[in-house]
């Protein structure tokens, strides 16, 4: 079995301790901790989940019920950059389905899939609060609005 020092860096363990200190009980920090360790691995594997559970004094199933509840915790591998394309009402009205088609054509993937080179994953997301610039998406951490096919061809050109 792997032990903590093989699975997590010293920096991560230090950061986890800092996060836990913000709450009166360790488990309260579990979402912050999952996000922290996900940042370095793109997703939460079963091994990492078990390790985080051990550190926070939770059972694996207790932590997994949290991990699987939230949209931004990935329990399956995703690409280097996750594209979150808004599918809520204003973006839908302003043509998000056409944008989705452009992205899928350019990257030759379907919604929810990862490109063969592991660079991109396309997922739908709820309203990103950019409705005055609909349709909108998050590319990694960057919010991009007023999407049209020209913009998509520039940001995500056909391979």
């Amino acid at each position: 079995m792997l032990i903590a020092k093989d699975m997590m860096t010293t920096t991560e363990l230090y950061e986890i301790a800092k996060l836990v200190a913000h709450y009166p009980v360790a488990r309260a920090a579990c979402i912050d901790v999952l996000k922290l360790v996900q940042k370095n691995r793109r997703y939460i594997s079963d091994d990492i989940l078990a390790e985080v559970a051990r550190i926070l004094g939770m059972s694996i199933s207790e932590l997994d019920e949290v991990a699987t509840f939230y949209n931004l915790i990935y329990r399956q591998p995703v690409g280097e950059t996750v594209i979150l394309l808004c599918d809520s009402v204003t973006c839908w009205m302003m043509g998000r389905n056409k944008i989705a088609k452009s992205i899928m054509d350019n990257l030759t993937i379907k919604d929810g899939e990862t490109t063969a080179d592991g660079k991109y994953t396309l997922l739908p997301i709820v309203c990103l609060g950019h409705c005055d610039h609909a349709p909108a998406m998050l590319m990694g951490q960057t919010l991009v609005g007023d999407l049209d096919s020209t913009k998509i061809n520039k940001l995500l050109p056909k391979a």
């Binding site: 709450y23 309260a28 579990c30 979402i31 996000k35 949290v66 509840f69 949209n71 931004l72 915790i73």
Partner: peptide, 23 residues
């Protein structure tokens, strides 16, 4: 606290559960 995404977190008691590290 940066959330991990779910609309229901905006309901104030659901938000409290989320801050406690629960669903």
């Amino acid at each position: 606290h940066g959330g991990a995404g779910r609309y229901i977190c905006g309901e104030e008691t659901a938000l409290l559960n989320s801050l406690e590290g629960r669903r």
